Simulated scan of single mutants.
Amino acid sequence: WLTDRIGRKKLFFVTLAVYLTATAATAFSWNLASFALFRFVTGAGIGGEYTAINSTIQELVPARYRGRTDLIVNGSFWIGAAIGAVSAIVLLDPAVIDPELGWRLAFLTGAGLGLVVFVMRLWIPESPRWLMTHGQPERALKIVADIERMVPGGGEPDRPLPKIRLTMRTHTPLREVADTLFHAYRSRSLVGLSLMVAQAFFYNAIFFTYALVLTDFFAIPAANIGWYILPFAAGNFLGPLLLGSLFDTLGRRTMIALTYSVSGILLAVSGYLFSIGVFSAQTQTIAWMVIFFFASPAASAAYLTVSETFPLEVRALAIALFYAIGTGIGGVAGPALFGVLIDTGSRSSVFAGYLLGSVLMVAAALIAWRYCIDAECKSLEEVARPLAAQNN
């Protein structure tokens, strides 16, 4: 909602400031209640970050690079996860530092990394599309010209581009937002919601219970969990890095359906092997690394899909809405369900949870194959006409 009113760039700094402040405050928690409160606020900042980041990527990056750029930027989360895992190995080791101090330093480390990102964002311009609809066309044209000079092959397009006339507006009424999402673009909403829910359950259910599986079923000491997160993070980053360009060449429909279905099938197979006790901790980690090599670009493609298939004025709110619903259904229910399943101590019970995640991913793949928009190498205005566009 704020993204449409104050702009992409301002919200960039607001959400990151919320995240930084809450993460740093977590290091000074004095009891469980304060810890939970600060983590709640941190989550609010992260949720806002997804909205600001993805809407900005779509509106700044040229169409022919939009898919791979979105996937790689979202996948870079796992670089931070790897750094966090390494720092945790040191800071949570009682032989190195007092545990009462170590966990607090771990959160301060996260806040410190965020400060670096904060400074880097000073060079990111405002969205020219947002500026155009909010009465600042001169600024928008200057930003576009700067981007074209920096992009190889930029400059004059190889075909005539359609022109549209926009009506300036300060904001988009919520009634118009609701009509756009649930009436005019309801099939796109179905795709976006399906992808978001499936990837949220898949990711949160497995990643948030990763340590529990290793400690409860493979007897890995808690102090060593960080070493197992490193290859997991590597698979999650390499997937978008190596497969990202295919989303711009083979196309959205093909790659989304492929990555979602392959992730689901591989999870079902590895879940069965886990249930019969074939895996060791090392081979289980390798299996998850391979699975999330495909699941990571699949999850990022959910944000890509939502952020590029709706009109400019509702883009950020669409991301926020579907992210919230997906996280509420998959991100809350998934870890809660798997926590119960793991607590039973039964591998078969955990396998049943993996099968549920597999079914959700395959179902999302089928929905995407049927209803996904072929948005590759198309301008955002070709994919979804702005609401502010005049009919004449």
Rank of each mutant, 00 (worst) to 15 (best):
residue 141 L to T: 15
residue 152 P to M: 05
residue 126 E to I: 02
residue 112 G to M: 05
residue 139 R to C: 02
residue 194 S to Y: 01
residue 111 A to D: 02
residue 123 W to H: 15
residue 220 I to P: 05
residue 137 P to G: 08
residue 170 T to F: 08
residue 177 V to Q: 07
residue 114 G to A: 12
residue 132 M to E: 12
residue 187 S to Q: 11
residue 219 A to C: 11
residue 125 P to Q: 10
residue 120 M to A: 13
residue 195 L to M: 12
residue 171 H to G: 07
residue 112 G to R: 04
residue 128 P to Y: 01
residue 213 V to L: 14
residue 153 G to H: 06
residue 219 A to H: 14
residue 169 R to N: 09
residue 206 I to Y: 04
residue 174 L to Y: 06
residue 214 L to E: 02
residue 117 V to E: 13
residue 127 S to E: 00
residue 150 M to Q: 13
residue 199 Q to S: 11
residue 136 Q to A: 14
residue 152 P to C: 06
residue 208 F to A: 14
residue 150 M to A: 15
residue 212 L to C: 02
residue 125 P to E: 03
residue 178 A to W: 13
residue 208 F to E: 11
residue 172 T to F: 05
residue 167 T to R: 08
residue 132 M to Q: 12
residue 116 V to D: 12
residue 124 I to G: 01
residue 163 K to P: 07
residue 121 R to N: 09
residue 129 R to G: 01
residue 167 T to P: 05
residue 193 L to Y: 01
residue 111 A to C: 04
residue 144 V to N: 06
residue 180 T to S: 09
residue 184 A to D: 15
residue 170 T to M: 09
residue 218 F to W: 13
residue 143 I to A: 04
residue 170 T to K: 08
residue 140 A to V: 09
residue 158 D to Y: 13
residue 137 P to E: 04
residue 144 V to L: 14
residue 139 R to W: 09
residue 197 V to T: 06
residue 218 F to K: 02
residue 197 V to S: 01
residue 163 K to D: 10
residue 169 R to G: 10
residue 119 V to K: 03
residue 148 E to Q: 12
residue 112 G to V: 05
residue 210 Y to F: 14
residue 214 L to W: 12
residue 112 G to Q: 06
residue 178 A to F: 15
residue 115 L to R: 09
residue 193 L to E: 00
residue 149 R to P: 03
residue 111 A to G: 15
residue 200 A to K: 02
residue 170 T to G: 12
residue 183 H to F: 15
residue 159 R to K: 13
residue 216 D to H: 10
residue 140 A to M: 07
residue 210 Y to C: 00
residue 212 L to Y: 15
residue 128 P to V: 03
residue 123 W to P: 04
residue 201 F to C: 05
residue 160 P to A: 10
residue 196 M to A: 10
residue 159 R to D: 08
residue 127 S to G: 06
residue 139 R to P: 00
residue 205 A to W: 00
residue 184 A to W: 14
residue 165 R to W: 09
residue 124 I to D: 01
residue 119 V to G: 04
residue 156 E to V: 15
residue 115 L to M: 14
residue 181 L to H: 00
residue 182 F to A: 07
residue 206 I to Q: 04
residue 142 K to W: 11
residue 139 R to G: 02
residue 112 G to Y: 02
residue 194 S to C: 11
residue 211 A to L: 04
residue 144 V to H: 06
residue 129 R to E: 11
residue 175 R to D: 10
residue 216 D to A: 13
residue 175 R to Q: 10
residue 180 T to D: 05
residue 175 R to M: 13
residue 118 F to R: 03
residue 164 I to R: 15
residue 158 D to M: 11
residue 133 T to M: 15
residue 157 P to H: 08
residue 119 V to M: 12
residue 125 P to K: 02
residue 133 T to D: 05
residue 172 T to Y: 00
residue 150 M to V: 03
residue 213 V to F: 14
residue 122 L to N: 06
residue 183 H to K: 13
residue 188 R to E: 05
residue 199 Q to P: 03
residue 195 L to E: 02
residue 160 P to L: 08
residue 188 R to N: 11
residue 127 S to K: 03
residue 123 W to Y: 14
residue 215 T to V: 12
residue 199 Q to V: 11
residue 213 V to S: 05
residue 115 L to A: 14
residue 210 Y to S: 10
residue 118 F to T: 05
residue 130 W to G: 03
residue 216 D to T: 14
residue 116 V to M: 10
residue 200 A to H: 03
residue 205 A to M: 10
residue 193 L to R: 01
residue 128 P to R: 00
residue 130 W to F: 08
residue 212 L to R: 12
residue 141 L to G: 15
